[in-house]
């Protein structure tokens, strides 16, 4: 997939002080369960903002409210200075939305899919024709433009899925976990495209539960869990939350639940959580406390097979803030 860059995009210049997306106090409940509780953030032109959190953290619910897919219980969303309300659709014209699952018509051709959505966004026929051609070129689908999309490979469908969102030259691109279930090659291509689009001045809202993606793409990250943004900032600002703490990753076997519980009870351990094949710890002066850690694990009927002191990263920040691993 070639890099997608916006030509003649509707993106305001980066010197424009007004944010492209400004959302505040977003709330959504399903019965007694609060899916999103007071989420708010801003994204400027040319900025990529990541919502990082595990499955069920409230990422999709948040962007569903941002894109107008879901009515919100409270809060406001302003896109390009226009409020997004249930009755007005103006703000939506500035948004390009890439759903997590494929959202293309399988019995229409690539060109017909683009034409249909172009018409929905009020584009003129000539413009649709010209812009479709551009999109098909940059997604590498020009020679398959007249084929039904159910004959496409998974990667081609993914490219068209993103291409449709870019057709009407949005100033805000919203991508909901676009790399879930995608092969490494396509994943890399998608990440490259997002970088290119951001570089071209587009505001990007990107949700993921992959720490590496957030670290690579996002200028700022909002760490979200249980419907709340726990912390927000650049990678450097977030890692600073860890202070002098280290992230220690133990590969271990045995009773990992018991071992993690025993470690968490130690005064020197800030956070301890177990995963399938080991335990993650946040603590200060890790090297000094290693003997105590190994002894505690052994007493809990577990055996450590390797110890890694990891450079502070967003996963460690998430662990520190929520007491949970991103993979939970």
């Amino acid at each position: 997939m070639t890099a997608i860059a916006q030509t003649e995009s509707g993106v305001p210049s980066s010197t424009d002080a007004r944010p492209i997306l400004d959302c505040r106090g977003l709330e959504k409940s399903y019965g007694d369960r609060r899916a999103v509780a007071g989420v708010g953030f801003e994204i400027a032109a040319g900025e990529t903002y990541g919502l990082l959190g595990p499955n069920g953290a409230g990422k999709t619910t948040t962007i569903s409210m941002v894109c107008g897919l879901l009515s919100r219980d409270a809060g406001e969303v302003v896109v390009n200075g226009k409020p997004l309300t249930p009755s007005s659709t103006d703000a939506k014209t500035a948004i390009g939305y890439v759903p997590q699952d494929l959202a293309i018509y399988p019995d229409l051709t690539a060109k017909e899919n683009l034409t249909f959505f172009g018409r929905l966004y009020g584009m003129a026929r000539v413009d649709i024709r010209q812009r479709s051609k551009e999109i098909l070129e940059i997604t590498g689908l020009a020679d398959r433009a007249d084929e039904r999309t159910d004959e496409f490979s998974g990667g081609m469908k993914r490219r068209l899925n993103i291409g449709i969102a870019l057709l009407h030259r949005p100033s805000l691109l919203v991508l909901d976990e676009p790399t879930v279930g995608v092969d490494p090659q396509s994943r890399n291509a998608i990440l490259g495209n997002v970088e290119a689009l951001s570089g071209a001045g587009m505001a990007v809202l990107y949700t993921t539960h992959y720490m590496e993606e957030a670290e690579r793409l996002c200028d700022r990250v909002g760490i979200i869990d249980e419907g709340e943004i726990k912390a927000e900032g650049t990678r450097r600002e977030l890692v600073a939350i860890l202070g002098e703490h280290d992230h220690v990753s133990l590969d271990a076997t045995g009773d990992l639940t018991g071992a993690a519980r025993a470690l968490a009870s130690l005064e020197t351990i800030a956070e301890a959580t177990h995963r399938e094949s080991g335990i993650d710890l946040i603590l200060a002066n890790a090297s000094r406390h290693l003997p105590q850690i190994l002894e505690t694990v052994a007493q809990a009927d577990a055996e450590v097979t390797s110890v890694n002191v990891v450079e502070p990263d967003l996963e460690a920040v998430f662990l520190k803030l929520t007491g949970k691993a991103l993979r939970d």
Binding site: L69, T89, A103, Y105, Y121, I164
Partner: peptide
């Protein structure tokens, strides 16, 4: 089911 409803809802059209 096809996921296109989400895309329609995200477009400038009302329910």
């Amino acid at each position: 089911k096809e996921g296109t409803l989400a895309r329609l809802l995200a477009a400038p059209v009302s329910r």
